Structure formats: structure tokens, C-alpha cells
Simulated scan of single mutants.
Amino acid sequence: MASSHVPVLTERVLGLLAPALVDHPAVVVDATLGLGGHAEALLAAHPELTLVGLDRDPEALRASGERLAPYADRVRLAHTVYDQMPAVLAELGLTGVDGVLFDLGVSSLQLDEARRGFAYAQDAPLDMRMDASTGPTAADVVNGYPAGQLARVLRDYGEERFAGRIAAAIVRERERTPFTSTARLAELVRGSIPAAARRTGGHPAKRTFQALRIEVNRELDALRDALPAAIDALRLGGRIVVLSYQSLEDRLVKQALAGRARDTTPPGLPVPLPGHGPQLRLLTRGAETASEVELAANPRSASVRLRAAERIRLTEGAA
């Protein structure tokens, strides 16, 4: 499966990272290794490159490890969440890197394996853990959260207009029988949303499943911590590329990159202060989307938003 996986926007990712990787023994962190498609392309394009691959999913690490076996002497894999990047780099003795790649959201492995419980279109155990060896499941959230907390999760992480109605329906139904399957939850969500609202916007359960997945895996909390750490790890001239697939992720990425691309001199001073200039140069105008050619070759690129930046100033004590 890993060898047949087609990663999103591969050529664009390679092109954006290339200026930081050519003509020297560079280091790239693939913070969301998944099935290793981007990593394989980077290693093939840059013979001196060392790639540090992070993933919380043990199954993904096994699959990508097999895919990247021809480059094993230049690959370092770690079973961890991307907000632990500083600890991984410290353990490897790396004080700085030349590139960081995030390909956020659910991996193809997780979506295509029905038993993982990520897909509302297939009946499966209500799990949704990216690392199935640890932590609460989606069933724990659905069956254990009070109605108000459950509504907050659906509203904040799924941008679900009918969060309160869905949460109330879940609480009523779980008192009869706890939720254990994706199909039962998806059907309840469908029935909780007014018929007029079900006619547009895709599957009615899409937003609820997104919200539960984010809550179970602490995705936004981890990303909020990981982005500044990744920027801090970049050497001068290093580049960061982030692919996100929903507005909450993209908003965090936009804020993190734009915040470091501004001069932080206090307003009202006649000249910029030394050490307060931008740390990053933005490499994209807003968020880039997939071309028609990319969409035809890889339908999963439909919702992708790509942002990238280059490190142009180091803070004191940085690599």
C-alpha cells in the first residue's frame, strides 16, 4: 500500500524545499511521515539528504520504513507526535535543520483501513486514534462527555451549526445503549440535522467525525505547539512547507507564519529596532490550492491548502 500511495502536491513541495537542500548535506524533518511518499521523493531528489521522519501511527511507521528501506542509511524514524520534534532533534544531536514538512490531517492508511473508524461511510469500531496503542477513543468521547462539552467539541473543531442538537441526541441515545460503531453515530447525526441542511455540504456526519478525530488526537493543540518549534529549528535559509486540509488547521498555519514574517518593532518608533525584523519570508501568496491536473491525478488533494516560508533571520542563540 505504501508504494502505491500518491502524496499530495509532491512536485510543488519538492520545488519549495529544494533551494534549502541543494549542494550540501541537508536535514529535513517530515513531521507527518504517513506512508512516506513525500519522504521518498525528497530522498531520491537529494542524495546527500538526511530525513528525520515522525509519525504517531506505528502502522504508518512500519509501512513507510519498508518503502524507505533503500535509503535506510539516510533515514531516522521516530514514533512520536510532531509537537515532540525538539526532543527528537536533541536526541539525534541536531541543533538545526534545513527543511520541515507537515502534511496534516488523516493519512491514506488511516482513511482506507475501515477498522480504524475514521470514515463515516463504512461501519467500524468508533476509534479514530492515530496511535491505536494509547489514549481515549472516539467512543470514550461520545459516551463520556457531558452534553455541553460534547457540543463545544463539535462546534469548535467541526464548525458544526447544529452542535447542540447533535450533542443532545447523542446523550439521549447513549443512555439506552452506548455508541460503539461509526454507522450508528453517522445515522444519528444525519437524523439530528434538518432535512434542508442535509441537501448541501456533503455527508451530514462529516463535521462531527472531523471534530471527534481532532479531539481524540489533540491535533490542534499539537499543531499549535509544533509550528513555532519547527520555525525555531530552521537554520538560516531553511524552509517550512505545510499542507492543511481544513480551515482550523490552515488558520493556525497562517497565523504562525505571518506572525514571524512581521517586524516586531513597537509602533511609534521612527526606525525599526535591531533584532525585531521579520524572521521569515513568505513563499506563497495566501494559501495555494491544487491544480486541475493535480485534482485529476489525486482526488484527495481537493481540500488542500499549502503555505510555505523561508527563514531569513535567526534569533539570538539559534542554529
Rank of each mutant, 00 (worst) to 15 (best):
G65C: 10
G238D: 10
L126P: 09
L248A: 10
P178F: 14
P266N: 05
T315V: 13
L306D: 00
D221H: 13
V97N: 03
T208A: 14
L314Q: 13
S291F: 06
V271M: 12
E66L: 13
L306I: 03
G144E: 06
H79M: 05
R116Y: 14
R235K: 14
E215M: 07
R184A: 14
E11W: 04
V142M: 00
A78K: 09
A20L: 08
E66T: 10
T264A: 13
D23C: 01
A229G: 00
A256R: 02
L9M: 15
L282S: 02
G158L: 09
R184Y: 08
P204S: 11
T32Q: 07
E159F: 00
P274E: 15
L51I: 01
L252I: 04
E219Q: 14
H79R: 14
E160W: 03
T180A: 15
A297H: 12
Q246T: 03
V88H: 05
L188T: 15
V293P: 00
L282C: 04
Q255G: 00
L17N: 10
L243R: 04
R74D: 05
H24L: 04
R62D: 15
A78M: 03
A183R: 15
P25D: 13
L220K: 11
L68S: 10
E48N: 01
V97Y: 01
L21F: 07
V88S: 08
Y145D: 14
I240K: 03
A132D: 15
E59H: 13
P86S: 07
Q149V: 09
E173H: 14
L212T: 11
G259P: 03
V100R: 07
N298T: 12
E249S: 04
P194V: 05
A261L: 01
I193V: 15
L150H: 09
I231K: 01
A183Y: 03
H46E: 06
A72D: 13
S4V: 14
V242Q: 04
R251S: 10
T50R: 06
L42P: 00
A168C: 01
T50K: 00
A226R: 08
L51C: 00
Q122D: 10
R172Q: 12
A20S: 15
L94T: 05
A44R: 10
L9T: 11
L306K: 01
E219K: 10
D103M: 02
V153M: 07
V29Q: 04
P47E: 12
L126I: 11
A151T: 05
Y245R: 03
S64Q: 09
R311G: 03
V97P: 00
D57W: 01
A229K: 05
A78H: 13
V142S: 00
D225H: 12
R305V: 02
E11I: 08
G144N: 02
P125N: 10
A60Y: 10
P146I: 06
A309Q: 03
L92E: 10
E59F: 08
S133Y: 05
L248D: 09
R116A: 13
V22W: 07
V75Q: 09
L43P: 02
V22M: 09
R176M: 09
